[in-house]
Design a binder for these strands. Sequence first.
RNA 1: GGAGAGGUGGCCGAGUGGUCGAAGGCGCAGCACUGGAAAUGCUGUAUAGGGGCAACUCUAUCGAGGGUUCGAAUCCCUCCCUCUCCGCCA
Length: 426
Amino acid sequence: MLDLRLVREHPELIEQQLARRGMALDLTGLQLIACQERDLQQQRSGLQAEGNQIGRDVGERMRAGEAPHSPAVQELRDRGNHIKRQVSVLEEEEKQLEARLRQQLLAFPNLPAAACPEGRSEADNVEVRRWGSPRVEAGLEEHWQLAERLGLLDTERSVRIAQSRFVTLLGQGARLERALINFMLDLHSSRGYREVMPPILVNTASLTGSGQLPKFAEESFRCADDDLWLTPTAEVPITSFHRDELIPAEQLPLRYAAYTPCFRREAGSYGRDTRGLIRLHQFNKVELYWFCHPDHSDAAHVELTGHAEAVLRALELPYRVLDLCTGDLGFSATRTFDLEVWLPGAGAYREISSCSNCGDFQARRSAIRLKDGKKTRLLHTLNGSGLAVGRTMAALLETGQQSDGSVQLPGALVPYFNAASLTADG
RNA sequence: GGAGAGGUGGCCGAGUGGUCGAAGGCGCAGCACUGGAAAUGCUGUAUAGGGGCAACUCUAUCGAGGGUUCGAAUCCCUCCCUCUCCGCCA
């Protein structure tokens, strides 16, 4: 959420920054509402101050022994009543303005960071670096072909259980998924992340706090009877873990690593990536999350991205890093580095992690502040996949495929999977 | 799901209509004492929003929302949550 003060005092700054995202906005209307709201508040609190004084006066007279219905007291009462009516009128107006303001503010995305490259779409994202040598050969299988042949998953029966875009992992496939989750969590724990396993049904306030609501309601599955939603990412429960908290500066940064299933409706993506593990309604993800001091969030962002990269390196999966341009930035992010893993079968880089600095955007929505001496200020939140587990499996399958039909696994995974390869009779 | 109890500041805990943003304690910070520390003493220590260069000041907040009243932490209504017992259950 954007700072209301900024809306009042420098709406042109917001217009400029959101223009970088490709949004043409005129905030004069909103600014007007914001100022009206402030003026109403001033009027109202002035009246309330007067009312409070009357209350004190009456109390004093009564204590002095004056009769409760003496003319003087009665007059004070009348004035008190009059003020009360005025206040309630102002309050009603104020509430309406506040609701309108909030509704509009919640719909604005975060402002891009100064360093964020300019651009209109993903075509303008800037490649920052590459790691590893991508395997480029003709005749390689795609991961869903490999997975089907090796019996790692069952798509058809999953439709019977749920619907399309769900998958059931089986045998080696299920074990590999489990091995990957453990491998990733161990790696992050060893770097100081605190492991968390949060609720994956979350309430509306949580989804609003991290930015998925109100704008992206159609992206999440909802349990209508309970004000609960299935989490689209662990970012949601982790943000809310500290919602409405005031955290001593010396405790920062707080760093969490969470494995959770994630649920997305993928509305509007019909026909895309319908086979295999790339785009599912339910998928597993290990998420990295930082709550940090605003002065350190840029450095933290680089560090967090490095931690996600470390997983790819340990698994010997070539990848590239993109600095997302202003036009491709997610709603809550002020800057994002995407990691794209090389899929030799598909012959393309595919997103496997998105590492974002959200600045104070989620912290303001979720009221998460830090206390630095006497000062309180909003802290910064960062998140990144470390990594999307299904996509990691896809990359491992395509990268490790052998001419004999088996799949060779990287050495780092052997202790977790208890075998060095996947085979047709495994 | 049924019955009962309860939700007060960073924490514990007092407070059943007026001067209560709230006693007391703990914690924390500063000062004094000390060679240094402990102990002790003194002082300070909530959040949000508004106004002011600032000192400061106004408003709101005692789970949430509404009501009664000149005045509500305190009375009334609704909701949420927590705890205990019973039931059910991985």
